[in-house]
Simulated assay, not measured.
Amino acid sequence: MTTLLLINAGSSSLKWQLMQLPEAQPLAHGQVERLNLPDSIVKVVVDGVKTKLTVPQLDEVGAINDVLHRLVAMAIIPSLSAIDAVGHRVVAGGTVFQQAIRLTDDRLLALQELSELAPLHNPLEVRCIELLMASLPGVPQYAVFDSAYFHDLPEETAIYGIPYDWSRDFQIRRYGEHGISHRYLAQQAALELGRPLDTLNLITLHLGSGASITAVKQGRPIDTSMGLTPVTGLLMGTRSGNVDPSLVPYLMKRLNLATPEEVIMRLNTESGLLGVSGISSDMRDLHEAAATNARAALALEMFITQVVKLVGAYYVELGGADALIFAGGIGEKDELIRQAVIDRLAVLGIRLDRELNVAGEAGRLSAADSAAEVLLLPTNEELAMAREIQEVITSELDLV
Rank of each mutant, 00 (worst) to 15 (best):
G312C: 05
G62P: 14
Y314Q: 10
A118D: 09
Y175D: 11
E317D: 11
Q171T: 05
L53Y: 09
A73M: 01
E335M: 09
Y149D: 01
L348V: 04
T3K: 02
T394C: 05
G312W: 02
V358M: 11
E261Q: 14
L336P: 05
N380A: 09
S147Y: 04
R34F: 02
L124D: 12
T259I: 04
S13F: 04
H121I: 06
S167F: 04
V46F: 02
N256I: 00
G30N: 08
L124P: 11
Q98D: 10
A92I: 08
R174V: 13
M19G: 00
V216T: 05
Y315C: 06
H69W: 09
P123I: 12
E155P: 00
A384F: 00
T3V: 06
I101R: 08
L286Q: 04
P221F: 02
L348R: 10
G93W: 04
L14A: 10
A371H: 05
L120M: 11
M74V: 00
L348K: 07
N268L: 14
V49M: 05
T3E: 00
N8E: 10
V44L: 14
L5K: 00
I389V: 15
E116G: 15
S246A: 15
A258S: 15
R168P: 03
Y149Q: 02
E177H: 05
G363S: 08
C128R: 06
V400T: 14
V32P: 01
L109H: 14
A211F: 05
A82F: 00
P260I: 03
A359I: 13
S167N: 10
D165C: 00
G278D: 10
Q171A: 14
N268T: 12
A63F: 10
F326T: 01
D146K: 08
E373L: 01
A313S: 13
D169R: 15
V400S: 14
V358P: 01
T259G: 07
A82D: 02
S40P: 08
R70C: 07
E288Q: 15
M74F: 01
I129W: 04
E332Q: 09
M19A: 07
L71R: 05
W16F: 15
A63P: 12
D105H: 03
L257C: 02
A367P: 01
I159M: 02
H182K: 06
I162R: 02
M385R: 06
L267D: 13
I264N: 12
F170L: 15
A92T: 02
S395H: 13
S135Q: 15
N65K: 13
R127L: 15
D343Q: 13
Y175I: 13
L376R: 07
I350Q: 03
A340C: 06
I342Q: 05
A258G: 12
V96M: 09
P249Q: 07
L18H: 00
A367S: 15
A372T: 11
V248M: 11
M265A: 14
L35T: 08
N8C: 06
R220S: 12
T3I: 00
A134D: 15
S79A: 12
G278V: 07
P78A: 13
S135N: 13
V311Q: 01
R173D: 04
G320W: 03
L375H: 05
A291E: 13
N122S: 11
E177Q: 03
P221Q: 05
F326C: 04
G312H: 02
